[in-house]
Design a protein around this nucleic acid. Structure first.
Lengths: 224, 224
DNA sequence: CATTGTGAACGGATTCACAGCC
DNA sequence: GGCTGTGAATCCGTTCACAATG
């Protein structure tokens, strides 16, 4: 039905921008905006207009020449791409400071992502509830995850025990993992694992700030 | 002294891997490993050996043919690149669930990153302490940030107030910002802003899992 | 002899620039 | 006229493969 079903695979870089597109399109709709041009959208989300057009083109001819794009229609398309009709049921493994914070937030707005269940190995926290989610024993992961129909897992387990926790998760058949521990873990080829590491992000940011864009800082007034 | 000071700029992609390299080199050193070959290192950090050699080469001829790399020397070099001798003083703006969690963790080990001060606009939390850090009023940001010698700022302010908070931060002369709110904010050209958005990360991960690597899942047994 | 450092080939993503279309 | 969709050019990073080197 859509292009990505038929033939060409969506470029990775494009795929990464889809959630951004989707969120802003919804914001536009809430503001009553009914049509948008790639140039306008570009300013809003700070992605070059050519990139936006190229990205959109992968999903068919979504726009109209001399007019722009129809916002409700785009939302329909991207909603299907992200399959936002289907609730994505998430499990959280590791209920420390960060895990607790994620549980309390339990996802902004209605992106249809929900943390259904949480796990830890610490008897102190097992059995307690946070934001109406009961913390279960990691040993019961597989059973509970199956019952709850879990799609993806977030892990906030400290590096030392991350591999062990992730082995358990992988053994249960889960193939999508978002890992907040910085150390690389071994997973089978078919498992998708994504790392988020605050320390690394900060160090990289500071490195850029000190080295890469030093030039701009000295010659402050450019065309800004 | 080093190559990056003299002439060629370090590729962005390389720069992003530096913190990863550094962390693993330290792990090696702690285990008493004194030399490492690019192939071995590759297996450990899951980055191709050719990429590692290429990356390293940007900082000079760090290795020896037929031998490998000297771990202590590499650490010395990368330590200087990341200037880890100098303590990086961080400010946190927005002390909600996530902000609190970050304050409680206040950075793993001795990467020489420290959250020195935290800010919010909620009178309920202003004046309270978390992990020995007193929460200050955002109105005093500029003054405090200068006094504390802040290098970079982490913001966990909700989207609605993110722009305003970041304007305050930018006005104080800060040029490195790590923003957990997903909406794009306007900043002057010389300011480096990095976004971390959990929802986007998860959606992208699930999208890949469902679409991009579908093929692998069906033909499970490859050469693994 | 084993491994680095690197030219050269490759491939993916971005950007340009414009033909085609509304 | 104004904007999309897209060939073509370009940029950037990765990978290959091997000459140089201790």
């Amino acid at each position: 039905m859509n292009k990505q079903d038929q033939n060409k695979p969506i470029p990775k870089a494009t795929a990464k921008r889809i959630p951004l597109y989707f969120r802003y399109l919804r914001t536009l709709q809430e503001s009553g905006v009914i049509r948008i041009k790639s140039k306008e959208f570009s300013q809003m989300i700070q992605v070059p207009s050519a990139t936006i057009r190229r990205d959109f083109s992968h999903f068919g001819e979504l726009g109209r020449s001399g007019y722009g794009y129809d916002v409700p229609y785009l939302i329909e398309v991207f909603s299907e791409i992200l399959s936002t009709q289907v609730e994505k049921r998430i499990a959280l493994v590791g209920v420390g400071n960060l895990g607790k914070a994620l549980l309390k937030n339990n996802f902004r707005r209605n992106e249809n992502l929900t943390i259904m269940c949480a796990f830890d190995s610490d008897p102190e926290v097992i059995g307690t509830c946070i934001n109406c989610v009961e913390i279960k024993n990691i040993h019961d992961f597989s059973e509970v995850a199956k019952k709850e129909g879990i799609t993806a897992v977030i892990t906030t387990v400290p590096s030392k025990h991350a591999q062990q926790a992730i082995d358990t998760i992988v053994a249960s058949g889960i193939t999508a993992i978002l890992n907040f521990a910085p150390d690389r873990v071994k997973v089978p080829e078919h498992v998708n694992i994504q790392y988020i590491d605050l320390t690394t992000e900060l160090q990289t940011l500071i490195y850029f700030d000190e080295h890469v864009s030093q030039v701009n800082k000295l010659g402050l007034a450019k065309k800004a």
